[in-house]
C-alpha cells in the first residue's frame, strides 16, 4: 500500500494530458496552457498521442459518433490512466440536453473518474481535479 502511494505521488508530479474536446469545450479550457494559468508549472503538459498520456480530458457535448473515438482513445492509453470529464455538457448534455444524438452522461460509455462541473469549468477547478485524480482512483480500488 505504501509502495502504491509512492507510485501515485510520482504520477501526480508529471501528468501528461491528451485532449478529446468537442465544440466550445476546447476554446474555453485552452487558456490553462497559456501564460496566465500555465499548467506546465504543475508538470502538466499536453501530448500528441494517447500512448504517452496519463489523463484524458473530455469536454464539450459528445455525440454517439464521437463517443466511439473517445472509447478507442481511452483504450489506447497505457495504465495507470484516468479520465476527467469537463463541463456541464459531459454531465447532462448541457444546453443540448434535448438533442436526439447528444450523449447525456459520458460515464455511461466510458469509465469517467472525475467530473468537473461548470460551463466552462474554472482553470483552478481543473488543477484541483488533476491533483486529486489519482488519489481518487486509489481510494476507489
Amino acid at each position: 500500500m505504501v509502495k502504491q502511494a509512492i507510485k501515485m505521488k510520482r504520477l501526480i508530479k508529471a501528468i501528461w494530458v491528451f485532449n478529446w474536446f468537442n465544440s466550445c469545450g476546447f476554446a474555453e479550457v485552452v487558456p490553462i496552457a497559456g501564460s496566465r494559468w500555465d499548467m506546465e508549472r504543475f508538470g502538466i503538459i499536453l501530448t500528441g498521442t494517447p500512448r504517452h498520456a496519463d489523463v484524458l480530458f473530455i469536454a464539450g457535448y459528445q455525440t454517439f459518433k464521437s463517443m466511439k473515438r473517445a472509447q478507442r482513445i481511452c483504450e489506447q492509453m497505457a495504465d495507470p490512466k484516468a479520465v476527467i470529464a469537463l463541463g456541464a455538457c459531459t454531465m447532462s448534455g448541457g444546453m443540448y440536453w434535448d438533442s436526439y444524438n447528444t450523449v447525456k452522461r459520458v460515464s455511461d460509455y466510458i469509465p469517467v473518474n472525475i467530473y468537473v462541473p461548470g460551463c466552462p469549468p474554472r482553470p483552478e477547478a481543473l488543477f484541483e481535479a488533476c491533483e486529486k485524480i489519482f488519489q481518487h482512483v486509489r481510494a476507489m480500488q
Binding site: 507510485k7 510520482r10 504520477l11 508529471a14 508538470g43 496519463d54
Partner: peptide
C-alpha cells in the same frame, strides 16, 4: 519526474 513516471507506466 517525467522519466521516473514513465518508468512506472
Amino acid at each position: 519526474l517525467d522519466v521516473s513516471k514513465f518508468m512506472i507506466k
